[in-house]
Design a protein around this nucleic acid. Structure first.
Lengths: 198, 198
DNA sequence: ACCTGAACACCGTTCAAGT
DNA sequence: ACCTGAACACCGTTCAAGT
C-alpha cells in the first residue's frame, strides 16, 4: 500500500480524533475507552496505533483541537464586534448563556487530566496563554481609555485578562458541576461585595 | 472471627480511606490504583471489598472526608475571627496563599470525576451547598450593614455567597493548572474592570 | 465475620501476518 | 505503508477457602 500523503495522514488523524470527541460527548472523558474509539472510527486497534503512539497522545491531540476551535470562534466574534469592548462584554461573549454547553464538562475534565499528565499540562498552558492573549487584545482599547500611556494600558490589559480568565474558570466549574450563574448578576454581586473602597 | 463493632468497622473504613488519600497525594486521583491502595493499607483486595463495594464508593467516601475536613477548618476559622467579616476577608481565608496546597489539585480532579459519576455528583453538590452556607453565615453581619431588613440581608448574603464560591472555584482551577493569583490584586482588578457604573 | 490471594473480565497496547 | 485482529499485560472485582 502506498504511503499516505502528509495531508491525508493529517486527515486520518483528525478523523480518529473526531471519533474520539464523539465518544467523549457521549460517555465522558475519562470513561472513553479505546474500544469505543475503535468502534466509532470504524478502524482497527492497530490502525489507530499507527497514527497515535498512545491513548494519552490521542487525548492531547483531541484536547488541543477543542481549545483551538473555541479560541478561533472567540477571536472571530471579538473581531466582528469591533474594538470598543469592555471587560464585562468580553465575559458575556466568552460564556454563552443560552444552550447547555456540553463543552464545559469536557474542559473541566481536561484540566483535571492535565494535573497528572505533564504533556497535556503543556497543551493546557499553551492554550490558556493563547486565550489570555485573545482577551488582552479585545480589551486593550478599553484599557487605553483608563490609562495615560501605551505601556500602562498594556500592563492593565494583561493583568485584567488574567483576572477575567480566573473568573471565567470559576464560571465554567460552576456551570459544569452545579447551576450556571447569570453573568451580569455574578458581576454585579462581586463588585458590590468586594470593593472595600465603598 | 467475631463481628467488628460498629465503631471499629467505621475506623477500618477510615483507615482504608486514609491509605487511599495518601496514594492520591502521591500519584493523583485518576491514576490511583486499587493495587496501590491495597499495598498502602497493608490489607488484601478481598478485605477492602468487604468494607467498600467498589472503588467508586471508596473514592466517594474519601472525597466526602476531604470536603468535610476543609469545611470544618473554615467554619472554625470564621468563628474565631469574630462576626465582622467582609466578603474580601472571607475570600482571603478560604484561599491560603502561603503553602503550595496540594488539595487544590485533588478538588479539581473530584469535580471532573463527579461529572461522570452521578453519586459522586451528589457528594459534591451537598458539600458545595454546605460550604456556601458556611460563607453565608460568615458574611451575614456584613450584609446586614448594607440592607434595611433581615430578609434583604439574608438574600444578599445568600447570593453573594454563591458569587464568592464561583470566584473561589476559578481561583482553585487557576492555582491548580497555572499560577496562583494574588487574591487582593485579583479582587482589585476585577472590581476596576467590571464595574460599569464608574 | 473478616480476611486471603488466586482467578476472571476488561482495557490499553503490541505484533505477526495480510494487502 | 497501512491495516487487521488475536494475544499480552495490567487493573478492578469476585469467590472459594482459611481462621
Amino acid at each position: 500500500m502506498p504511503r499516505l500523503t502528509e495531508s491525508s495522514r493529517q486527515a486520518r488523524r483528525e478523523e480518529i480524533a473526531d471519533a474520539a470527541l464523539r465518544c467523549v460527548a457521549r460517555v465522558g472523558f475519562t470513561r472513553t475507552t479505546m474500544a469505543d474509539i475503535i468502534a466509532e472510527s470504524g478502524l482497527s486497534a492497530g490502525s489507530i496505533y499507527s497514527h497515535f503512539p498512545s491513548k494519552a497522545e490521542l487525548v492531547r491531540f483531541a484536547s488541543s483541537s477543542i481549545f483551538t476551535t473555541r479560541e478561533d470562534r472567540l477571536e472571530t466574534a471579538f473581531a466582528e464586534l469591533g474594538t470598543a469592548l469592555t471587560p464585562a462584554q468580553v465575559m458575556s461573549h466568552m460564556l454563552p448563556t443560552g444552550d447547555n454547553d456540553p463543552g464545559f464538562d469536557v474542559l473541566v475534565q481536561i484540566w483535571a487530566e492535565s494535573l497528572t499528565d505533564p504533556e497535556l499540562g503543556e497543551v493546557v498552558s499553551f492554550n490558556v496563554a493563547r486565550l489570555r492573549a485573545v482577551i488582552e487584545t479585545a480589551i486593550t482599547p478599553w484599557a487605553a481609555t483608563r490609562t495615560s500611556s501605551d505601556e500602562a494600558a498594556a500592563t492593565l490589559a494583561d493583568k485584567t485578562a488574567g483576572a477575567l480568565l480566573t473568573l471565567m474558570q470559576g464560571y465554567i466549574v460552576q456551570a459544569a458541576i452545579g447551576t450556571k450563574p447569570e453573568v451580569p448578576e455574578l458581576v454585579r454581586l462581586l463588585v458590590d461585595a468586594i470593593d472595600d473602597r465603598r
